[in-house]
């Protein structure tokens, strides 16, 4: 597993680099036609062209960064909101903690993709996308944070701090957070994997992070897949690589962080 994990991190960082500098090295714009529709790969368009004759390579390079950054923002927002709720629930009295967690349980009953669709119907833009993904990931983050913090909350140094009369921000920031940061970071990795999935799915529905979102490239390439399979293959491989690399990296991070709570 460890070799696979290392390969995962290496692949992840390589992919990250390509995605981040992608818009700078794209040879063409996303909208400029460079050849006939569904042209096979050639010197002018290395991955061929799409149904409007636009350069697939440029569209792919331009679409990666919005996909990645939106996923990161959404995962960060979800983990932050969820962790805060979970930490407060763990530190507060039982009744209040249960009341904080109960609405979140109702959210987990809905498949994430449905919540995404619901939010995007009401708010069809990038903000809606970030909110939707954050809402789907917050309940699970809250559970992780609550159970991690519950193990720490009863320890002597925390009770000592409560007896000293320290305030909430001190308790959370100085007494609890340093001990639960590992599991929370590992949890963030898992939420990021889920966020990539959902953001790509939104792109697939035409409601994604940008006009050249990889999910959108897939759905645009499907009708002409028999004529220009490369146009479908490239974004399919892109999403699969990003998802697999993020999954392997987060799996390894989760294994490393397990020792921190001992």
């Amino acid at each position: 597993m460890s070799r696979l994990g290392k390969a995962g991190w290496a692949l992840f960082f390589l992919l990250l680099l390509v995605i981040l500098i992608g818009p700078a090295i794209a040879p063409n714009t996303a909208t400029h036609p460079v050849g006939p529709p569904y042209a096979p790969p050639s010197g002018r368009a290395l991955l061929g062209t799409d149904h409007l004759g636009r350069d697939m390579l440029s569209r792919l390079l331009l679409g990666g960064r919005p996909l990645l950054l939106t996923s990161l923002a959404a995962a960060a927002a979800g983990t932050l909101a969820g962790s805060l709720t979970g930490l407060v629930a763990a530190l507060s009295r039982r009744r209040l903690g249960a009341w904080l967690m109960r609405p979140l349980d109702a959210i987990t009953a809905v498949p994430p993709i449905l919540l995404l669709l619901l939010c995007l119907t009401a708010l069809p833009n990038r903000t809606g996308l970030v909110i939707a993904v954050a809402i789907t990931s917050a309940p699970l983050s809250a559970r992780v944070a609550r159970s991690a913090a519950a193990q720490v909350a009863g320890r002597a140094h925390v009770e000592n701090a409560i007896a000293r009369g320290e305030n909430w921000s001190w308790l959370l920031g100085r007494e609890i957070l340093p001990l639960v940061a590992g599991p929370l970071l590992a949890d963030f990795g898992i939420r990021f994997v889920a966020a990539v999935y959902l953001v790509a799915a939104a792109g697939f529905l035409g409601l994604g992070a940008s006009d050249t979102d990889w999910g959108r490239l897939i759905v645009e390439a499907l009708p002409g897949a028999a004529l220009q399979p490369v146009a479908l293959l490239a974004p399919v491989i892109g999403v699969a690589f990003l998802a697999v690399a993020a999954n392997l990296a987060s799996d390894r991070a989760a294994q490393n962080s397990r020792g921190l709570l001992a």
């Binding site: 696979l4 994997v193 999935y197 790509a200 799915a201 697939f204 999910g215 897939i218 399919v236 999403v239 699969a240 998802a243 697999v244 993020a246 999954n247 392997l248 799996d251």
Partner: peptide
């Protein structure tokens, strides 16, 4: 299964 797990169904 670990590799396949994270790939979206539509991919």
């Amino acid at each position: 299964s670990l590799l396949l797990l994270s790939v979206p169904e539509f991919v």
